[in-house]
Design a protein around this nucleic acid. Structure first.
Lengths: 168, 168
DNA sequence: GCCAAGAACATTGATATCCTAATATCTGTC
DNA sequence: GACAGATATTAGGATATCAATGTTCTTGGC
């Protein structure tokens, strides 16, 4: 389950020291920041997967289910979901394939655009999404192990990074 | 190349509002933080992949190559690399498979432990790692689009999260 | 000291995801 | 009516995880 045993020193700080020692000091902090993001992503995703496994969901499928549950009609065009969740169209297709096979979502023809496909959440899908949200709230989102102030800082800094990348 | 068109509102803030509206205010900030990490990871990884593609490397393989180049002998046991890079043994195996096929790394028997395998960087591997590092430093790590102070905050907060997860 | 039981190391196979590239269909405009 | 653009899908390559396997090492009872 756990990937690596606890190390005596922070491996990212160690890499940063190597950067400085090689004369790449200008990039050292940025390298450490990027590596930290990658590792943090791995950590939280592992926790999420552990919580969602009993519910037969992955994070990608959970996001789609929850997004649909927030809409009035309970349905959205595939492209629209990809734009809101910022994932590739192919990822939406395969995730909806899976959700449809589980009976949590169904594909409907778009009423006015014959190219488009609507993904529509089923009542079973709604129930599953709600159960998953409660589990994730209690076991992951409220248990990050950092202070509220740090969570706030994290959101602010990453919002700047996302805005700079052209997200919104 | 780009995944989604620029949106008028931050989708993560939008999700956070939904959380509050549903009475899940306790978990809203944590949810927003986790989602921000996931999106930030996607953004930086995409940039890294773009820079590394002409060099025929991925980030996973680049990390292994760079780690090996930092050692005295230029070689490490597979397990040791997995521990330092915090990835699964299977990931190390498949990455070294590819690097070996590219002639950037070779497998050697461990001198004292017949179970273990040493991955050893070749001179071509060293050259490739150096070129990749220069490209990443200039085009990614020094161009994150956030201030030095924000980079520092990010490192501090994520170090706390990683420490809490038992990384070191 | 010897040997059996358990642990560690690396690999393979299976499954899921994301990304790229290419394709078929449909829309809307010039 | 032709043609560029949008929509969704398929196919292929890469990575990560889990589960299971075959070796080899290490340790603890005797």
């Amino acid at each position: 389950m756990t990937i690596g045993r606890a190390l005596d020193t922070d491996p990212i700080e160690e890499a940063r020291r190597q950067w400085v020692a090689h004369g790449w000091g200008e990039a050292a902090d940025g390298m450490a920041a990027v590596t930290s993001i990658a590792r943090a992503h791995q950590i939280v995703l592992q926790r999420i997967d552990t919580v969602l496994r009993p519910l037969d969901l992955t994070f990608a499928r959970y996001e789609i289910l929850t997004l649909l549950s927030f809409t009035r009609q309970g349905s959205l065009p595939m492209t629209k979901m990809g734009a809101l969740l910022q994932v590739h169209p192919t990822s939406v297709t395969s995730a909806v394939d899976r959700l449809e096979g589980q009976g949590l979502v169904e594909r409907l023809p778009h009423p006015s655009d014959r190219r488009a496909v609507l993904a529509s959440i089923t009542s079973e899908g709604r129930a599953r999404a709600l159960a998953a949200t409660h589990a994730l709230n209690g076991q992951v989102f409220e248990q990050l192990g950092i202070t509220e102030h740090q969570i706030s800082q994290l959101r602010t800094v990453l919002r700047a990074l996302r805005a700079n990348a052209g997200d919104f």
